Amino acid sequence: MNFLDIAGSLLAQSGFAAMNWQNGAMILVSFILLYLAIAKKFEPLLLLPIAFGMFLANLPITGLMLEADPWYTQGVLRIIYSGIKSSVFPCLMFLCVGAMTDFGPLIANPISLFLGAAAQMGIYVAFTLANTIGGFTVGQSAAIGIIGGADGPTAIYIANNLAPELVAPIAVAAYSYMALIPMIQPPLMRMLTTEKERKIKMSQLRKISKVEKIIFPIFVALFCSLMLPSVAPLLGMLMFGNLLRESGVTERLTNTAQNGLCNVITILLGLTVGATADGAIFLRIQTITIIAMGLLAFACSTMGGLLIGKLLCHLTGGKINPLIGSAGVSAVPMAARVAQVEGAKANPTNFLLMHAMGPNVAGVIGSAVAAGFFMILFG
């Protein structure tokens, strides 16, 4: 066998020969997401692992996402992906989020609950649309709608329970829109609010006692789990993480949840969410429809929070800046930071971050409650 025969044989068995247009398209998409993560710094901790997972999964015949029996012969990313399919990663991520979250702004300003609830409007808009256009079951429609809450772990959790066959596109859509919040929300914020409204400075929040902060996670876990038992895995872990933070007696556990555990779960979850975006499966009309409805849901949720923010601004005589309503989507703390940036652009002395955190953390609870409601109805 001469050199040309050997080279030809190697090329025929290589990934180059197996490459198709779907793989090429998804690799191109992954490069765009990597650019946004690295050059534009759009939530790189989230977007970069997703983009690279997408890139790896679309390299032909690598077997990284191979399904096989027994389980230990599967591709390495497929084995890690079991943490998503079992809902272990989403629940652990909620624990980490709870350990990093200060519910003080929500406790100090309970009106934030209305903003957080209003910002779930997109969930019900997308659910109604998906259920109306046909092609989706009510369970699938509910799972698609949850994308509007901009809460990746909740979206994965409800998809696992109501539409396991749609976990991949729903997870990719939810996490991609979370990462792209700095691109999606500002135009909507400027469209629905006036410059005068964006300039509004809000008064300082009252100081919250330690007792209030300790009682809050226990009460929320108790009340919501009794009302909607199916949401206990998510909200229970969220409130457990928060109790670790607020108790003041578990510093080592809190630090682990906030840093080491959170970083590990972010890497594994992001990488495997991206790895589900296989071109042969992903570039279908159904998947593209899901992604489009997810974007509509997210936009409607943002608008719902802004419109109720405007209403509360009017009712309070201009004491509430409607921008904080956009933070009612549950992407913590990304949405709150965007509200702060937009407020500071209108008025450099404006500091809305802590005020926006109230609706932001209320949105986390709101999207989880919406998921539990859907699971009771359609589970």
Results as ranks from 00 to 15, higher is better:
A179W: 01
A179H: 01
P182S: 09
P182N: 10
I184P: 01
Q185G: 00
P186T: 08
P186V: 10
P186R: 03
P187C: 11
R190I: 05
R190A: 08
M191V: 14
M191G: 07
M191S: 15
M191D: 15
L192G: 04
K196R: 06
K196T: 14
E197S: 08
I200C: 04
I200R: 02
K201V: 08
K201G: 07
Q204S: 04
L205D: 03
S209Y: 12
V211W: 11
V211G: 01
E212L: 09
K213E: 15
K213V: 11
K213I: 15
I214S: 06
F216Q: 09
I218E: 10
I218R: 01
I218V: 14
F219H: 06
C224P: 06
C224K: 02
C224I: 11
S225E: 10
S225M: 03
S225D: 07
L226I: 12
L228M: 13
P229S: 05
P229E: 06
P229A: 01
V231R: 00
A232K: 02
P233A: 06
L234E: 01
L234Y: 05
F240T: 15
F240P: 12
F240A: 10
F240I: 15
G241W: 03
R245N: 11
S247R: 10
S247G: 07
G248N: 06
G248M: 10
V249C: 13
T250K: 05
T250G: 02
E251D: 14
R252S: 12
R252T: 14
R252V: 10
L253C: 09
N255H: 09
N255W: 05
A257C: 09
A257F: 12
Q258C: 02
G260N: 14
C262P: 00
C262A: 12
N263R: 11
V264M: 13
I265M: 09
I265Y: 07
T266W: 01
L268G: 02
L269N: 00
